[in-house]
Lab assay of single mutants.
Amino acid sequence: GKRLNIQLKKGTEGLGFSITSRDVTIGGSAPIYVKNILPRGAAIQDGRLKAGDRLIEVNGVDLVGKSQEEVVSLLRSTKMEGTVSLLVFRQED
């Protein structure tokens, strides 16, 4: 696979993607993946982020050990017109 650095500018329609966690172990944390890209928002305008990408970092914060809720609040904490920096891991087909 490969790592991608993606910067998304948060506009009025938001970042435009949803996340999910897979393989949750009890008391553990699961990897966070991009669930889908919404028809409006920064992600589809940028065009690089894809469903199935694994989020590794948000704005330089390592997501290991973070819950899905914590990751959502990290993403939401970005101000309007601010930039969210994502490091994602993509499995090659």
Rank of each mutant, 00 (worst) to 15 (best):
G1P: 03
K2I: 09
K2V: 07
K2P: 01
R3N: 13
R3G: 08
R3H: 11
L4M: 15
L4E: 05
L4V: 10
N5W: 10
N5E: 14
N5T: 15
I6Q: 03
I6P: 00
I6L: 04
Q7P: 06
Q7N: 12
Q7M: 15
Q7Y: 14
Q7H: 15
L8S: 01
L8T: 03
L8A: 02
K9R: 14
K9G: 03
K9E: 07
K9H: 13
G11P: 10
G11M: 08
G11W: 02
G11I: 08
T12Y: 11
T12W: 06
T12R: 12
T12M: 15
T12F: 09
E13L: 07
E13F: 15
E13Y: 08
G14A: 04
G14R: 02
G14D: 07
L15F: 09
L15P: 02
F17Y: 03
F17D: 01
S18L: 09
S18E: 15
I19F: 03
I19Q: 00
I19G: 03
T20L: 06
T20V: 05
T20Y: 06
T20M: 11
T20I: 07
S21C: 15
S21D: 14
R22D: 13
R22K: 15
R22I: 11
D23M: 08
D23E: 08
D23Y: 09
V24S: 14
V24N: 10
V24R: 07
V24A: 13
T25Y: 09
T25I: 11
T25M: 11
T25W: 04
T25E: 15
T25R: 11
I26W: 06
I26Y: 10
I26P: 12
I26H: 13
G28H: 13
A30Y: 08
P31D: 12
I32R: 01
I32Y: 11
Y33L: 11
Y33T: 06
K35M: 05
K35G: 15
K35P: 01
K35D: 15
K35Q: 07
N36M: 14
N36T: 14
I37D: 03
I37S: 00
L38R: 12
P39W: 07
R40K: 06
R40P: 00
R40M: 04
G41P: 02
G41T: 02
A42P: 07
A42G: 07
A42I: 03
A42F: 01
A43N: 01
A43H: 00
A43R: 00
A43S: 02
I44K: 13
I44T: 07
I44S: 14
I44C: 13
I44V: 09
Q45P: 02
Q45F: 06
Q45A: 12
Q45D: 15
D46T: 02
G47V: 02
G47H: 03
R48T: 06
R48A: 06
R48S: 06
L49P: 00
L49W: 00
L49A: 00
L49V: 00
A51I: 13
A51W: 03
A51D: 10
G52R: 05
D53S: 01
L55V: 05
L55F: 03
E57H: 06
V58M: 09
N59V: 00
N59K: 02
N59L: 01
N59H: 03
N59Y: 00
G60Y: 03
G60C: 04
G60E: 04
G60R: 04
G60F: 02
G60S: 10
V61K: 07
D62M: 07
D62E: 03
D62P: 14
D62G: 12
D62F: 04
D62S: 12
L63D: 01
V64P: 03
V64Y: 14
V64K: 15
V64H: 07
G65C: 06
G65T: 07
G65S: 08
K66M: 14
S67P: 11
Q68I: 14
E69N: 07
E69Y: 09
E69M: 09
E70H: 07
E70F: 14
E70R: 05
E70Q: 09
V71F: 04
V71I: 08
V72I: 15
V72D: 14
V72E: 08
V72K: 12
V72N: 12
V72A: 15
S73I: 08
S73R: 12
S73C: 09
S73Y: 09
L74G: 03
L74F: 06
L74A: 05
L75M: 07
L75Y: 04
R76N: 15
R76K: 15
R76L: 08
S77L: 06
S77V: 10
S77F: 12
T78P: 14
T78N: 12
T78S: 09
K79W: 11
K79C: 08
M80V: 12
M80W: 05
M80F: 11
M80A: 15
M80D: 14
T83K: 10
T83S: 11
T83M: 12
T83D: 05
V84R: 00
V84C: 08
S85A: 08
S85Y: 08
L86F: 05
L86G: 02
L86Y: 00
L86K: 03
L86H: 00
L87I: 10
L87K: 15
L87D: 15
L87E: 11
V88C: 07
F89D: 15
F89N: 14
R90D: 03
R90P: 03
Q91L: 11
Q91S: 10
Q91A: 13
Q91K: 10
E92A: 08
E92C: 07
D93W: 04
